[in-house]
Amino acid sequence: MNYWLFKSEPDTWSWDAQVAKGDVGEEWNGVRNYQARNNMRAMKIGDRGFFYHSNIGKEVVGIVEVCRESAPDSTTEDPRWDCVWIRAIKPLTRHITLDEAKVTPGLEQMVLVNNTRLSVQPVSPAEWEIICLMGGVEPY
């Protein structure tokens, strides 16, 4: 299993909106960055990810799971853009802010800490465990 982080502006697509989609999940569309697209192309069903509220809050708020592998993005006819589908698994008991992540030992190399603009990014197994434990959930 691989781990990821999905960033969304909560006034555009929030954790609550993701949860409301239930087990069907939602297409993670609209990504127009090659590195983020390539990250989605590498994802497999069952991979886990953090759901991160960007701009407002700047915090990890929940855990999602990839429920459909990369396929053409339905919001464009441009064949360069793909996306996965994700579904909400559980909220973090305690949200983890970007400021907190920046000062937490073991997260110094985390992409979120060093490249806050990348909308879909990898998370190492060690980083996954640290954030989960800080957030009050089992890292499974």
Rank of each mutant, 00 (worst) to 15 (best):
S70A: 14
E26A: 13
M40T: 02
A36H: 05
V137C: 11
I86R: 01
A88F: 12
R117Q: 12
D23V: 13
R48Q: 08
H95Y: 09
W28A: 01
C83I: 03
E100D: 07
C67D: 09
D73M: 01
N29C: 12
V137A: 10
F51P: 00
A17V: 03
P139C: 05
M110W: 14
L112P: 01
W15N: 04
N38Y: 09
S70G: 03
I63Q: 00
M134K: 10
A71L: 09
R68V: 15
L107N: 06
V120H: 06
P72F: 04
D23W: 15
V113L: 01
L118F: 13
K102G: 07
C132K: 04
H53V: 00
S54V: 10
Q109W: 11
V60N: 12
D73L: 05
L5Q: 02
R37T: 14
E129Y: 14
S74K: 15
N39I: 08
R48F: 14
F50M: 01
T116L: 05
N29I: 12
L107C: 09
C67T: 15
N38G: 05
K90P: 01
S54Y: 02
G136F: 08
K44C: 07
T97H: 05
G22L: 12
L98W: 08
Y3E: 00
S124Q: 05
W85G: 07
T116I: 11
K21N: 10
D23G: 12
A126D: 13
I130R: 01
G135Q: 06
G25R: 02
P79T: 12
R87H: 04
A88M: 06
F6N: 01
F6G: 04
V19Q: 08
I89G: 08
C132R: 05
D11H: 14
C132N: 03
R117N: 09
R32C: 03
I89D: 15
G57L: 03
G135Y: 10
